[in-house]
C-alpha cells in the first residue's frame, strides 16, 4: 500500500440472495485521479461504487480507503464516517430543503453560509440558494448534488451515472464541467457509467466490468486500442473480428499481413477498429462497398470481402466513394489478436 493509492479493493465479493453482484473484484485508485467504472447494466459497477461508499457491506474481501481498512477482516466504517461524497443518479436532493440548505446539510452550521455561496459559484449556479429542488432543471439538480457532495471537502467523490437522465447535448457539456470542477478541487473521483464515450472522454483511468468481475483496467487509450477480451473490444467501441493465423508478432488474415501488439501463435481472431482501415478506390479491389451511412462528421461504410465476410469501416466523408464500388484497403497501426 503506497502513498499514492487512495482506494483499494482486494478480492471483494457481494451477493444479493443467490445472485453474485460482485465477485473477486480487485483494483486500485490513485489519489487525485478520475476513474470510470464502465460496463453494461447489471455488471456490478453500481454495487462496487456503493461498496466504496459504505452503503453496502461486502460478503468477502477487503476494502481500503485513505490508508485504513473500511470493510473486511472484521473492520467496518459506517458511510457517515468515511469522508466520501456521493452524487446519485437522480440527484437525491432533499425535497423539503432549499438548494442552500441541501448544500449546507453536510456542513457544520457555523461556517456554512460563505461556503455555500462558494460552492454554488463553483458549480456555476450563484444566486440559486433560495430555490427548491423541484424548481430546478435536471442539469441544475445534478450541479447542486455535486456541490453538496463536495461541500465537506471529501477525499473521494462518487458519481452514480450522474448524467444518464439528461439529454445528449447537456450530458456532453455537463460532463466536461464536472471534470473541470472535481479537478479544481483535487478530489479523487470515481464515477459509474454504461456510456463508453463518457468514460473514455473524461476519465484518467477506466475500470471495465463484466458479470461482476473486473475485465480490464487501464487508460482510455489502452482500453480502446488494446482491449483484453473480445467482449471488451465490442463494448468500448465498434470492432471487426477477422479469422487469422498468428506467428509471433505477425498475423495473416483476409486483409493480408498485420503487426500484432502482443505476440500470439496459432489460430486467432484479429480485432481491427473501423477507423483504422483506410480505403482506396480502384477498378478491381479486394472488397466491394455494400452500403454507406452518412453522419455528417464521418461515415460508416459496410464492405463485402472476396470471401463473402463483412467489414465495417469509418472514414471522413469522401465524395469519391459510392455503393457498389471496388476498393483496396490498408490497416494503420498495430492490431490485437485473441486466441480462438
Amino acid at each position: 500500500m503506497d502513498g499514492t493509492t487512495l482506494i483499494s479493493f482486494d478480492q471483494v465479493e457481494k451477493r444479493y440472495g443467490t445472485t453474485e453482484a460482485v465477485r473477486a473484484v480487485s483494483f486500485a485508485v490513485e489519489r487525485g485521479s478520475l476513474v470510470a467504472l464502465l460496463g453494461p447494466s447489471g455488471c456490478g459497477k453500481t454495487t462496487t461504487l456503493r461498496l466504496i461508499a459504505g452503503l453496502e457491506a461486502p460478503d468477502a474481501g477487503r476494502i481500503w480507503l485513505d490508508g485504513r481498512t473500511v470493510a473486511g477482516k472484521g473492520a467496518w466504517v459506517a458511510p457517515d464516517a468515511r469522508r466520501v461524497g456521493m452524487v446519485f443518479q437522480d440527484g437525491a436532493l432533499f425535497p423539503h430543503l432549499t438548494v442552500a440548505q441541501n448544500i449546507a446539510f453536510p456542513l457544520n452550521t457555523r461556517n456554512g453560509r460563505g461556503r455555500v455561496e462558494d460552492l454554488l459559484a463553483l458549480v456555476g449556479m450563484p444566486g440559486y440558494g433560495e430555490r427548491f429542488p423541484h424548481q430546478l432543471s435536471g442539469g441544475q439538480q445534478q450541479r447542486v448534488a455535486l456541490a453538496r457532495a463536495l461541500a465537506p471537502q471529501p477525499s473521494v467523490v462518487l458519481l452514480d451515472e450522474p448524467f444518464s437522465r439528461l439529454d445528449a447535448a447537456l450530458r456532453a457539456s455537463l460532463r466536461e464541467e464536472v471534470r473541470a470542477i472535481v479537478k479544481q478541487t483535487g478530489a479523487t473521483t470515481v464515477f459509474v457509467t454504461h456510456d463508453q464515450e463518457e468514460a473514455l472522454s473524461i476519465a484518467d483511468r477506466v475500470v471495465v466490468m463484466f458479470d461482476g468481475e473486473v475485465a480490464q483496467t487501464g487508460t482510455p487509450q489502452e482500453v480502446y486500442t488494446r482491449p483484453a477480451t473480445r467482449a471488451i473490444a465490442t463494448f468500448v467501441g465498434e470492432a471487426n473480428l477477422l479469422r487469422g493465423e498468428a506467428n509471433g508478432l505477425m498475423a495473416e488474415c483476409a486483409l493480408g499481413r498485420m503487426i500484432l501488439a502482443t505476440p500470439a501463435h496459432g489460430p486467432v481472431d484479429i480485432m481491427v477498429r473501423p477507423e483504422a482501415i483506410e480505403l482506396r478506390a480502384v477498378r478491381d479491389g479486394a472488397a466491394r462497398i455494400e452500403r454507406i451511412r452518412y453522419f455528417g462528421h464521418d461515415q460508416a461504410i459496410q464492405l463485402c470481402l472476396r470471401d463473402g465476410s463483412q467489414l465495417d469501416v469509418r472514414s471522413l466523408p469522401r465524395p469519391d466513394l459510392t455503393a457498389g464500388q471496388q476498393v483496396d484497403l490498408f490497416v494503420r497501426g498495430v492490431v490485437v489478436a485473441y486466441p480462438r
Partner: peptide, 16 residues
C-alpha cells in the same frame, strides 16, 4: 421514501 435520499444523508456524515 426514495432510499437514495437517506443514503445521501448518510454520505453527508449523518449517523443512522
Amino acid at each position: 421514501v426514495d432510499r437514495s435520499l437517506e443514503e445521501a444523508a448518510r454520505m453527508s456524515g449523518r449517523s443512522a
